[in-house]
Simulated assay, not measured.
Amino acid sequence: MLPIRRDLRFALPAERIKNWHEQGPFITHFFNALSLLFPQGELFFMDSVRHYRQRIDDPELKKQIQGFIGQEAM
């Protein structure tokens, strides 16, 4: 199974833009901070998978690896 890229759009009311989580600003800021770290984490995962993909012999797993790297690169 290959990952599917989804284009998510959110229609938040103007008063909720800065405080979008229903549990309040602390949770909003917590998730915003996590989102700032995701790009580095995604690079780490891609590099890790790339490092070992030459050792994979299973064609289906190779296909999944390519899909994973493609998804994370997006």
Rank of each mutant, 00 (worst) to 15 (best):
Q71K: 12
L43M: 12
S35W: 08
P39W: 10
F68K: 07
A11I: 03
L37V: 04
F10Q: 05
R53K: 13
Q66W: 06
H29V: 02
L61F: 04
F31E: 07
Q71T: 12
W20V: 00
M46H: 02
A73Q: 13
Q54I: 06
I65P: 01
Q54L: 06
E60A: 12
E22I: 03
G67K: 05
Q54W: 06
R5W: 10
S35D: 10
R53Q: 13
F68R: 01
P59N: 04
Q54M: 10
K62F: 07
P39I: 08
N32W: 09
D57L: 05
P39A: 06
L61C: 01
L12I: 02
Y52C: 00
R16T: 02
K63C: 03
I65D: 02
E22V: 06
K62E: 05
R50W: 09
N32R: 13
P3F: 14
P3R: 12
I4Q: 14
L43T: 11
M74I: 15
L2Q: 04
R6W: 11
Y52I: 11
F26G: 04
I17W: 07
K63H: 13
A33F: 13
D57I: 06
I17K: 13
D7E: 13
L37M: 14
F44C: 00
D47E: 13
Q66L: 06
R9H: 09
Q71L: 15
P39Q: 08
Q23P: 00
K18I: 00
Q40V: 10
G67Y: 13
P13R: 15
